[in-house]
Design a protein around this nucleic acid. Sequence first.
DNA 1: CAGTGGATCGTCT
DNA 2: GACGATCCACTGG
Length: 203
Amino acid sequence: MRKLPVSFYARPDVLQIARELLGQVLVTRIRGKVTAGRIVETEAYKAFTDKASHAYGGRRTARNEDMYGPAGISYVYLCYGMHHMMNVVTNVKDVPEAVLIRALEPLEGAAEMAKRCAKRETDKTLSRGPGNVTRAMAVEKSHSGIRLNSDVLFIAEGISPAQSDIGVSKRIGVDYAGSDALLPYRFFIRGNACVSGPRLLNK
DNA sequence: CAGTGGATCGTCT
DNA sequence: GACGATCCACTGG
């Protein structure tokens, strides 16, 4: 499996990157366990003008500092006091753009994922939804800011879906962002059972 | 399947 | 002191 080159992330169009991340493979090797999943759902967060982004208006704090880092690193933060969210940082240093990994289709280590998620059996819900992605892959805040071609956490080249199999919708859970909540920044593989979100959005 | 409400805590005002 | 880039259990159809 070939790791995606930094040049993949270092491009200026975060929407295009979010779209092209579909089908790629997220891999972690944590505490001796390898788990991998095919990315089936993403969301883009744009720099400066995007009210749904942590970096809206250029806001820069200790929490979101990694969003301002160079392309190809992770940005992981805690949400609702209990869920970690994992993002892929894109563009160039000091331009805070990122892609949230919202769902994976388990490819390897599904039994381990189930154990981490306190489930008896492997099923489609293991890594469906951003909180479940990090739980299944054992990603947490300590993994923020690391390069996505490291041995611990990386993204490998997968099989991209056909353009006609890519769905687009508004993002989930960002209603506080006013009109920006309606932007078509969410991408998913149509018909894939591991995609999260209300059915209505997944056409 | 859709809608609702509780859990839970780091971060920023 | 308030609020999340969420999840799950539970309700009612």
